[in-house]
Write a protein that binds this DNA or RNA. Structure first.
Length: 138
RNA sequence: GCGGCAAAUCAGUCUAUCGCUUUUCAUUAGAAAAGAGGAAAGUCCGGGCAGCACAGAGCAGCGUACUUCUUAACGGGAAGGGCUGUAAUGAGCAAUCAUUGCAGUACAGCUAGUGCCACAGAAAAUAAACUACCUCGGCUUGCCGAGGAAAAGGUGAAAAGGUGAGGUAAGAGCUCACCGCGGUUACAGUGAUGUAAUUGGCAGGGUAAACCUUACGCGCUGAAAGACCAAAUAUACCGAGGCCUGCGCAAGCAGAACAGGCUGCUCGCCUGUCUCGGAGGGUAGGUCGAUCGACGCUGUGCGCGAGUGCAGCGCUAGAUAAAUGAUAGACACCAAAGCUGCGUGCAGCAAUUGGUACAGAACCCGGCUUAUGAUUUGCCAUUUUU
RNA sequence: GGUCUCAUGGCCGAGCGGUUAGGCACCGGUCUGCAAAACCGUCUACAGCAGUUCGAAUCUGCUUGAGACCU
């Protein structure tokens, strides 16, 4: 998972997705909260063992509430957008995590009532990433 | 031109960059191929599939309800019949009837029983008699009493067959003609039903999307079903009390009692063996189910049709906190304003701006319902012009 | 994914085929120097669209919204 200088890795395969039910429950029970409207972020930091070297530096969960978006295709659209933005802007976060040998588990929840545009979401999500990196360095 | 209904087709396309899921290939890096819908939706029906249950019977419950057909099945679909509304035409004094077009139709049974029908009205279902009508009697001469009758008035959603004529004190299916309604018979039709003849003076208002009756159908639960792997396992532990009857030396057998099961209930059948209290352990996940099927397309035979037989070709998502996307550009289509032409609301033109619907598979099929952008065809209704 | 329930004024809530009770709130009045309390009065409703029926909040179908349960 080393980034070459010429080619920026913009992939986001399934290993980065948070699937374990136990981890999710732990996250929602103990996670810390950051709010950057229209996003709501819960996160949890872990020390990475040497044995689990193949593990990804972070795992993320995307969520769009059914309460606010009645139609399935609207929820899918929002989750796709969030994933798209994260995939393009995750580089800095990855580097920080790898140098500190830590693992981050976090969730992204969209809490507005309106369908977002790509540009708006990118701007907001970059703010979120900045804050996360600040938290890391504390 | 606008609106409605029905049927059919499509569901924006291409390029670049960066990504997602599955499969195949490759030692790796990576490469190639495939990747949402007509409704994937609502979950309103039906089936496959799976588990549990199932000697059998009865009761309850749920559903369906013109006929015939179609199908794996259906509450779906097709064809046909009846009924209702509406328009036109025709017959008739009228009541009403016939034909045609269009639209609708949850359309078994109130003549099995029970219930309900507010208000108004005399009376709301075994008929009855407020006003008015007729006869007789009385007198204060416009009222009272007795009787007749049920046509007229008014009420209501609905008033006890309708119209016309005869008849009568007045009237009444009281009688007659026609119409409507019911019964029977014959004929036609697989049948719903239709046609004709004959008969009944007419009895029996409506309501079953009121209880209900009749006929037919339905075992229950749904992929969070279920199977396998892994892991774990408790009919365990502690305390208190109890341990029935018969036979038998005993082991055991039989019975009783209790508990449980037969997933709506009962009969009936089967299984097990003590009760009370205390304390207290454990359930990360993975694989299959799961995508070749009542499958699709083409041709052809049968059938009015829904459908169905045969032949050929094709393989067309399989995810699992859940994949098919984002950005940029070009083209296509729609709308708006602009210019030109004239028949003044149409045609042509180049460029600009905005928009391109409804909506996301979650085991799989057959329907129904709802949402929705265009295009084409047919039918119906309406408006305007020639 | 599956199963089921509910919807009546601003809020709570009765009504099971015949003019939609009642309470709270709001508004107006009486009372008071002013207000509160009390009393009197007014206003505002059957989620929507069809059907059955003489008549529907109630019965039936479809739609919309809200909520609950099953791992």
């Amino acid at each position: 998972m080393t980034n070459s200088p010429t080619h920026i890795d913009e992939s986001l395969p399934k290993a980065f997705k948070l699937c374990s039910l136990k981890k999710i429950e732990e996250l929602f029970a103990k996670g810390s909260l950051i709010k950057v409207y229209p996003l709501r972020v819960l996160f949890l930091l872990e020390n990475l063992d040497d044995a689990a070297s193949d593990a990804t530096p972070f795992q993320v969960l995307f969520s769009a509430p059914k309460r606010r978006f009645k139609r399935a295709h609207d929820r899918n659209y929002i989750k796709r957008l969030m994933r798209e933005v994260l995939r393009k802007n995750k580089g800095v976060l990855m580097e920080q995590l790898q140098t500190q040998n830590k693992k981050l588990v976090f969730s992204l929840t969209y809490v507005s009532d309106e369908r977002p545009s790509y540009q708006l979401l990118e701007q907001k999500l970059c703010k979120v990433l900045d804050q996360l990196i600040k938290e890391l360095n504390l």
